[in-house]
Protein backbone atom coordinates (compact mmCIF):
# COMPACT_ATOMS: atom_id res chain seq x y z
CA UNK A 1 0.00 0.00 0.00
CA UNK A 2 2.34 2.64 -1.14
CA UNK A 3 1.21 6.20 -0.84
CA UNK A 4 2.67 9.36 -2.13
CA UNK A 5 4.27 12.21 -0.32
CA UNK A 6 1.74 14.32 1.47
CA UNK A 7 1.81 17.64 3.13
CA UNK A 8 0.82 18.16 6.75
CA UNK A 9 0.36 21.21 8.89
CA UNK A 10 1.57 20.31 12.35
CA UNK A 11 0.85 22.10 15.59
CA UNK A 12 1.59 21.19 19.18
CA UNK A 13 -0.46 21.73 22.29
CA UNK A 14 0.87 21.58 25.79
CA UNK A 15 -2.40 21.18 27.63
CA UNK A 16 -5.17 18.75 26.89
CA UNK A 17 -7.69 21.31 28.09
CA UNK A 18 -6.72 23.43 25.05
CA UNK A 19 -6.46 20.41 22.81
CA UNK A 20 -10.07 19.31 23.14
CA UNK A 21 -11.71 22.52 21.91
CA UNK A 22 -9.04 22.78 19.22
CA UNK A 23 -9.86 19.33 17.89
CA UNK A 24 -13.49 20.27 17.83
CA UNK A 25 -12.91 23.54 16.03
CA UNK A 26 -10.52 22.13 13.49
CA UNK A 27 -12.96 19.44 12.57
CA UNK A 28 -15.83 21.88 12.51
CA UNK A 29 -13.90 24.06 10.10
CA UNK A 30 -13.73 21.08 7.79
CA UNK A 31 -10.02 20.32 8.03
CA UNK A 32 -8.99 16.73 8.11
CA UNK A 33 -7.08 15.76 11.21
CA UNK A 34 -4.61 13.15 10.14
CA UNK A 35 -3.87 12.23 13.73
CA UNK A 36 -3.11 13.56 17.17
CA UNK A 37 0.01 12.17 18.81
CA UNK A 38 -0.06 12.14 22.58
CA UNK A 39 2.36 11.02 25.28
CA UNK A 40 -0.32 9.08 27.11
CA UNK A 41 -3.84 7.90 26.36
CA UNK A 42 -6.04 10.97 26.63
CA UNK A 43 -9.45 9.92 27.84
CA UNK A 44 -12.16 10.79 25.35
CA UNK A 45 -9.85 12.10 22.63
CA UNK A 46 -10.80 9.29 20.28
CA UNK A 47 -14.43 10.31 20.57
CA UNK A 48 -13.59 13.96 20.08
CA UNK A 49 -11.76 13.05 16.88
CA UNK A 50 -14.67 10.95 15.68
CA UNK A 51 -12.72 7.70 15.64
CA UNK A 52 -14.84 4.62 15.71
CA UNK A 53 -14.58 2.14 18.57
CA UNK A 54 -12.00 -0.56 18.16
CA UNK A 55 -13.24 -4.11 17.89
CA UNK A 56 -9.98 -5.63 19.02
CA UNK A 57 -11.74 -7.32 21.93
CA UNK A 58 -14.03 -9.17 19.51
CA UNK A 59 -10.95 -10.58 17.85
CA UNK A 60 -9.75 -11.58 21.33
CA UNK A 61 -12.99 -13.47 21.92
CA UNK A 62 -12.64 -15.34 18.65
CA UNK A 63 -9.06 -16.33 19.46
CA UNK A 64 -10.20 -17.43 22.90
CA UNK A 65 -12.86 -19.82 21.65
CA UNK A 66 -10.39 -21.12 19.10
CA UNK A 67 -8.10 -21.97 22.00
CA UNK A 68 -10.90 -23.65 23.92
CA UNK A 69 -11.89 -25.75 20.95
CA UNK A 70 -8.32 -26.68 20.10
CA UNK A 71 -7.54 -27.84 23.60
CA UNK A 72 -10.72 -29.78 24.15
CA UNK A 73 -10.85 -31.45 20.80
CA UNK A 74 -7.18 -32.36 20.86
CA UNK A 75 -7.32 -33.93 24.28
CA UNK A 76 -10.52 -35.74 23.42
CA UNK A 77 -8.98 -37.14 20.29
CA UNK A 78 -5.80 -38.25 22.04
CA UNK A 79 -7.47 -39.89 25.02
CA UNK A 80 -10.54 -41.40 23.41
CA UNK A 81 -9.42 -42.16 19.86
CA UNK A 82 -5.70 -42.14 19.32
CA UNK A 83 -4.35 -43.69 22.48
CA UNK A 84 -6.93 -44.37 25.20
CA UNK A 85 -5.12 -44.74 28.47
CA UNK A 86 -6.44 -45.77 31.85
CA UNK A 87 -5.19 -43.22 34.33
CA UNK A 88 -6.18 -43.98 37.89
CA UNK A 89 -9.47 -45.51 36.83
CA UNK A 90 -10.69 -42.28 35.36
CA UNK A 91 -12.95 -42.36 32.34
CA UNK A 92 -11.25 -41.87 28.99
CA UNK A 93 -13.22 -38.74 28.48
CA UNK A 94 -12.03 -37.18 31.74
CA UNK A 95 -13.50 -33.73 31.29
CA UNK A 96 -12.87 -32.30 34.79
CA UNK A 97 -9.19 -33.12 34.46
CA UNK A 98 -8.96 -31.27 31.17
CA UNK A 99 -10.46 -28.01 32.32
CA UNK A 100 -7.14 -26.55 33.51
CA UNK A 101 -5.36 -27.08 30.21
CA UNK A 102 -8.41 -25.94 28.28
CA UNK A 103 -8.50 -22.76 30.28
CA UNK A 104 -4.79 -22.10 29.85
CA UNK A 105 -4.94 -22.53 26.10
CA UNK A 106 -7.99 -20.31 25.89
CA UNK A 107 -6.07 -17.53 27.57
CA UNK A 108 -2.89 -18.21 25.65
CA UNK A 109 -4.55 -18.12 22.25
CA UNK A 110 -6.51 -15.04 23.10
CA UNK A 111 -3.56 -13.08 24.50
CA UNK A 112 -1.08 -13.98 21.81
CA UNK A 113 -3.62 -13.50 19.06
CA UNK A 114 -4.67 -10.14 20.35
CA UNK A 115 -1.17 -8.80 20.76
CA UNK A 116 -0.27 -9.89 17.24
CA UNK A 117 -3.46 -8.36 15.88
CA UNK A 118 -2.74 -5.17 17.78
CA UNK A 119 0.75 -5.00 16.34
CA UNK A 120 -0.56 -5.67 12.86
CA UNK A 121 -3.31 -3.09 13.04
CA UNK A 122 -1.04 -0.42 14.46
CA UNK A 123 1.83 -1.50 12.20
CA UNK A 124 4.11 -1.96 15.16
CA UNK A 125 7.15 -4.15 14.93
CA UNK A 126 10.85 -3.96 15.60
CA UNK A 127 12.77 -2.24 12.81
CA UNK A 128 9.74 -0.26 11.69
CA UNK A 129 10.53 3.37 11.07
CA UNK A 130 7.74 5.87 11.04
CA UNK A 131 7.61 9.55 10.48
CA UNK A 132 7.57 11.41 13.79
CA UNK A 133 6.03 14.81 13.57
CA UNK A 134 7.52 16.01 16.82
CA UNK A 135 9.99 14.29 19.16
CA UNK A 136 8.21 15.62 22.21
CA UNK A 137 5.00 13.85 21.27
CA UNK A 138 6.18 11.07 23.55
CA UNK A 139 7.18 13.48 26.26
CA UNK A 140 4.85 16.37 27.03
CA UNK A 141 3.25 17.67 23.82
CA UNK A 142 0.02 16.79 22.10
CA UNK A 143 0.85 17.00 18.41
CA UNK A 144 -1.86 17.51 15.86
CA UNK A 145 -1.19 16.80 12.20
CA UNK A 146 -3.66 18.18 9.67
CA UNK A 147 -3.57 16.68 6.23
CA UNK A 148 -3.41 19.09 3.31
CA UNK A 149 -4.97 18.55 -0.07
CA UNK A 150 -4.26 20.47 -3.27
CA UNK A 151 -6.86 23.01 -2.35
CA UNK A 152 -5.70 23.61 1.20
CA UNK A 153 -4.15 26.91 1.96
CA UNK A 154 -1.30 26.22 4.42
CA UNK A 155 -1.20 29.72 5.75
CA UNK A 156 -4.87 29.61 6.55
CA UNK A 157 -4.52 26.35 8.41
CA UNK A 158 -1.52 27.65 10.27
CA UNK A 159 -3.26 30.74 11.48
CA UNK A 160 -6.27 28.68 12.37
CA UNK A 161 -4.12 26.41 14.49
CA UNK A 162 -2.46 29.36 16.10
CA UNK A 163 -5.83 30.75 17.09
CA UNK A 164 -6.74 27.38 18.50
CA UNK A 165 -3.78 27.63 20.86
CA UNK A 166 -1.12 25.57 19.12
CA UNK A 167 2.58 26.30 19.31
CA UNK A 168 5.49 25.45 17.02
CA UNK A 169 3.30 25.30 13.97
CA UNK A 170 5.05 24.11 10.85
CA UNK A 171 4.52 22.30 7.59
CA UNK A 172 5.99 18.86 7.10
CA UNK A 173 6.14 16.58 4.13
CA UNK A 174 5.71 12.96 4.96
CA UNK A 175 5.16 9.82 3.04
CA UNK A 176 1.70 8.42 3.57
CA UNK A 177 1.17 4.75 3.33
CA UNK A 178 1.06 2.12 5.89
CA UNK A 179 3.66 3.48 8.22
CA UNK A 180 1.99 6.70 9.00
CA UNK A 181 -1.39 5.27 9.38
CA UNK A 182 -4.06 3.78 7.24
CA UNK A 183 -7.17 4.48 9.13
CA UNK A 184 -8.24 7.68 7.46
CA UNK A 185 -11.46 6.06 6.49
CA UNK A 186 -12.27 5.18 10.05
CA UNK A 187 -12.65 8.77 10.98
CA UNK A 188 -16.12 10.18 10.62
CA UNK A 189 -16.51 13.68 9.33
CA UNK A 190 -17.76 16.13 11.87
CA UNK A 191 -20.75 16.87 9.65
CA UNK A 192 -21.70 13.20 9.49
CA UNK A 193 -21.38 12.81 13.20
CA UNK A 194 -23.58 15.78 14.01
CA UNK A 195 -25.97 15.02 11.20
CA UNK A 196 -25.72 18.19 9.13
Amino acid sequence: MAGGIKKFVVGSFSDEAVLFPAVKNVRKAGYKIHDVYTPFPVHGLDHAMGLRETSLHTAGFIYAITGTTTALSFMTWVFTKDWPLNVGGKPHFALPAWIPITFELTVLFSAVGMVLTFCYLCQLSPFVKKHHFHPRATDDLFVMAIECTDKTNDAEVKSFLEKAGAQEINVQMAETGWWIGRYDKEQKLYREEKGY
Partner: peptide, 12 residues
Amino acid sequence: WFSQYMLIWYSN
Protein backbone atom coordinates in the same frame (compact mmCIF):
# COMPACT_ATOMS: atom_id res chain seq x y z
CA TRP B 1 -17.33 -24.94 42.43
CA PHE B 2 -14.87 -26.51 40.03
CA SER B 3 -12.03 -26.66 42.54
CA GLN B 4 -14.21 -28.42 45.09
CA TYR B 5 -15.79 -30.78 42.60
CA MET B 6 -12.69 -31.63 40.63
CA LEU B 7 -10.52 -32.30 43.69
CA ILE B 8 -13.09 -34.65 45.15
CA TRP B 9 -13.71 -36.31 41.79
CA TYR B 10 -9.99 -36.68 41.19
CA SER B 11 -8.92 -38.18 44.49
CA ASN B 12 -12.03 -40.36 44.49
